[in-house]
Nucleic acid binder design. Structure first.
Lengths: 339, 339
DNA sequence: CTGAAAGCGCTTACAG
DNA sequence: CTGAAAGCGCTTACAG
């Protein structure tokens, strides 16, 4: 392999001059610089980034710890984060915790071995009670998601409550009167926050919450959404709108409704949450709340970069909420477009 | 930060002894070792992996270059690769080429800066014609996918032809007589190979290929599958089976069929290809060809590790084909299970 | 504007 | 069984 010494020798300068020419520090005599650059080209020299890393203390890597890449939401988040990081010349190391608390802790510990400049952490196994543990990790860190809301770290998340509130109002404005809150479950985390938004919207419209319309679903997959909707139909619950707390359960429910002969949006108007790619491909396409994934990614990366570059700025943990956007698609359009 | 020198000082030994104790080389006096380990614990010392990397010439990172993480097939491949790599103590750096040839070349070049031990490359922008270019990269590399079949590198892929052949025979054995080859397109790559399998199966059954049953779809998404199926219905083509060349187009087509009142599998039996997670959640669940993604991942990683550890073994490029498995689900079951 | 030298934190022949 | 020292390939004060 060719090193900086080979280049220096060929160009007839010291290695310092090679380094300067490549990194653009200081002003140099133009022809010296050119000679170096020519030598670099001729040898096909590429600086060894491990050595740069050891010397500068920066690797240019950040890690993104998420539960599972097979979950479309996280795959898309990862994509957004990679784009945001690229703009800052950072590479992203995706790590899957599989929702396992021990793995999360192990990954956090691993981040301290110097090959990673900072961590974007979306906890899943760890919860609010573990917040104090995070202080033990001196790695720059930004938290994502709703599992740890009051940790000792910067936190970037979305407007869960405002999002479902807007979704609910949207269906109300389309004439729906009996709307399912589809996906309630644990009182904490996203589910609780999103249910609160549903309640807020009804309250503002001077409507009472009918508890039989609040449908519990703990894990939010296509299959659990389908199963829950099957049960709703069996229980003969009357409804003309569905605010689903994520897109997957909405898509699962949609198929069941259609098989039962209910037209969407004519008989039942639907809206999901997350705005995953699939919502653009389903039939009908699914209205959804875009929680601002790109903004979350950009903000989180910017925050992390700040923590990395100013490790002891003494700035207290900050909270950021991205703006959401209601995306209207066929599933809640009146009158219904023909597919 | 604490370094190996701090540990050595506290334990009253040289840094070499600390290194030995941690890496388990050679036999050591047990109590010396214990003293070192105690010091490590007490200081919370973790070796700096960048320094290790510079010294040993290994980073423990491999990169996986894929077109797009938002494509479920690649998200799942990435997951499989990460598992396989973890078993070999390697971390995976996922890089998205977005199907762009220039980006692919840039990522390949970047891999030569020393922070990456080897590359798992699934070309998309680059094609067969670019195969010679790959020789310019001295990085250990294993090719995935069907874009470059005869490159100068190890290649791990799946039994495309055999898979669709089995799928087609499966539907024939279920009584289907007019089966769509759903997703033909470019003659090269997966589409061509999979169409060949369809033809093989018909030939073995002494059936002629009816060209009106060969449906062209260039890009394989849910939406393009839906559109193609709409067209098929409009054209009034008679059929009672669908061999889809991937799962996404099958899922898109499925919805259109159901909206048109066709029962699956009673009126139309269906099978896809890839066995993505979604096939387990759709209604009906979708039969599919599992192309052996885990085996591909394990083989590719093993191959790459061999190339990394024996860079000049002089072994010629090798080809591996994973075994496939036909997964029967509701969409091709006779008689139909009730969902 | 450029060179000689130190040092980032490790591992590993080389001695003893 | 362990220590002193070299060196992986860079960047960056320190001189000149």
């Amino acid at each position: 392999v060719t090193t900086i010494h080979d280049v220096a020798r060929l160009a007839g300068v010291s290695i310092k001059t090679v380094s300067n020419a490549l990194n653009g520090y200081q002003s140099m005599k133009p022809d010296t610089k050119q000679r170096v650059l020519d030598a670099v080209d001729q040898l096909g020299y590429r600086p060894n980034s491990t050595a740069q890393s050891l010397r500068t203390g920066r690797s240019g890597f950040i890690s993104l710890i998420i539960p599972d890449l097979r979950n479309p939401y996280f795959a898309e988040l990862a994509d957004s984060v990679m784009r945001a990081a690229e703009a800052k010349q950072l590479s992203v190391l995706i790590q899957q915790s599989r929702g396992n608390r021990d793995r999360e802790l192990a990954l956090l510990r691993e981040a301290r071995t110097g090959r990673i400049d900072g961590v974007l952490f979306s906890p899943n196994g760890m919860g609010e009670a573990d917040a104090p543990l995070l202080e033990a990790f001196d790695t720059p860190m930004v938290l994502l998601g709703e599992r740890i809301l009051n940790g000792p770290r910067d936190h970037v998340t979305m407007k869960n409550t405002e999002g479902t509130k807007a979704a609910t109002k949207h269906l109300l404005s389309r004439g729906a009167t009996r709307i399912l809150a589809f996906g309630a479950g644990r009182p904490t985390g996203s589910a609780g926050l999103r249910l609160a938004g549903y309640r807020d919207a009804l309250k503002e419209a001077d409507l009472l919450v009918d508890d039989s319309l609040v449908i519990a679903i703990t894990d939010w997959y296509r299959s659990t959404g389908a199963a829950a909707m099957r049960q709703v139909l069996e229980d003969n619950i009357k409804f003309d709108g569905v605010v689903a707390f994520n897109d997957s359960i909405a898509l699962g429910a949609m198929r069941i409704l259609q098989e039962a002969g209910r037209k969407i949006p004519d008989d039942v108007a639907m809206i999901g949450f997350d705005d995953i790619d699939e919502t653009r491909y389903s039939l009908p396409t699914l209205s959804s709340i875009n929680p601002g994934r790109d903004e979350i990614a950009v903000t989180a990366v910017a925050c992390l970069v700040e923590r990395i570059t100013k490790p002891d700025s003494g700035i207290a943990p900050r909270r950021f909420l991205s703006d959401f956007e209601l995306i209207e698609r066929e599933s809640s359009t009146v009158p219904a477009r023909v597919g």
